[in-house]
Design a protein around this nucleic acid. Sequence first.
DNA 1: TAGATTGTTAATCGATTAACAATC
DNA 2: TAGATTGTTAATCGATTAACAATC
Lengths: 223, 223
Amino acid sequence: MSSDYNEIPIPTIKRLPSYLRLLKGYRDEGMEMVSATLLADELGLKPIQVRKDISCTGIEGKPKVGFSVIGLIDAIVETLGWNNATDAILVGVGHLGTALARYEGFGNYGLKIVAAFDSDERKWGTAVGNVPIYNPDEMGSYIQENHVNIAVIAVPADHAQAVADRVVGYGVRAIWNFAPKDLKLPEDVVVQRTDLATSFAVLSAQVKLRLEQKKHRSGSTTW
Amino acid sequence: MSSDYNEIPIPTIKRLPSYLRLLKGYRDEGMEMVSATLLADELGLKPIQVRKDISCTGIEGKPKVGFSVIGLIDAIVETLGWNNATDAILVGVGHLGTALARYEGFGNYGLKIVAAFDSDERKWGTAVGNVPIYNPDEMGSYIQENHVNIAVIAVPADHAQAVADRVVGYGVRAIWNFAPKDLKLPEDVVVQRTDLATSFAVLSAQVKLRLEQKKHRSGSTTW
DNA sequence: TAGATTGTTAATCGATTAACAATC
DNA sequence: TAGATTGTTAATCGATTAACAATC
């Protein structure tokens, strides 16, 4: 009751984009219905989990038939809030920032990078892809005039906090942080960190575990 | 008993790099001991959680004093398997691949990109940063001769599966996949996906939730 | 109809959190 | 000593999984 509005579990949210990708493929192939079983199979998940996830989007399926491909696509897009494109600014146009600015897939996520800011004055007035690069001094007025809610931060770690504080001060409500730094921000600001270290940590720890198990196993082969 | 070797919870593994970053900062400032309370404070976590996480690294602290900064750093690096640098190859030298090849932080993670491969023949013989770019035809011999265990995949989504199958065939045991595609691979191959869509999904869904709550709240202000 | 699939309710599993004794 | 912090054991919480009735 108490404001349990759309409380979709984060693990579920993380799986939704994978479903969406598959579904778009199916749609393009002309498929009309899809079963949770098929999706699960394709992604190496259990059918029950897929059904539970799908139920979070509010869509209903038909026993024996499955779910409407188009219906599911719409429901997921809606659930993720990817239906109405959101303008975002990019701060930091280094190697990573450049890759982000040039990335064409964001359209699928309802994200549109409309402007970039970089402290290197040689970049001012130029553009990466279709994204113009401005002087950071103009950040405040840009954010306020264009009612920008989201900032993508791709500056060096030691500038990330200062940049975040600034954009939040100008009215930004959500930050996608690519800098290897844990930001301290007011509770009502949404922060998502996309961190190479974290991602690689999981890979690395699993590789290490496999190696140890292997060693151990080949060691105990002796008995 | 049954091979519960190093079974560290994945959520814990994901937090370790954050601790590590802080600790390295403390070390550079000359701090010798650190408490779980301080780390927790700094990262917005609960002290108990930090203690639990730390206990997974096997290191012990001193009541009232805390943990040795250097000891903790070593323990985390060891736990993640970041102590002995691992050679990796990069497949796909587009915008993202370039950013990855040029990224200097990988040294901290024990990852070293030693070679890159791209299907664009104009790139063969050139380099990004210090990383030479080769013809993909040479991938097999390179992997085998250099005993490469890890491949970083940054090719377009529709080539990712084929590339993954190939490198696994050549002996790669772990894949860090940046392509927006869920790979199907043998169980004994470790795969970690770093996916902009997934990451943004969480941000996006939270933003949407906030907006709805706000709307709802301001709506019910009427009573 | 028989078989496959959905959706719901309950059981299980694992991570987080709480409580508290041990200790410097 | 008193207070802060660790480490352990138990309780809670939430996600995954299982079981099964409903249904096309």
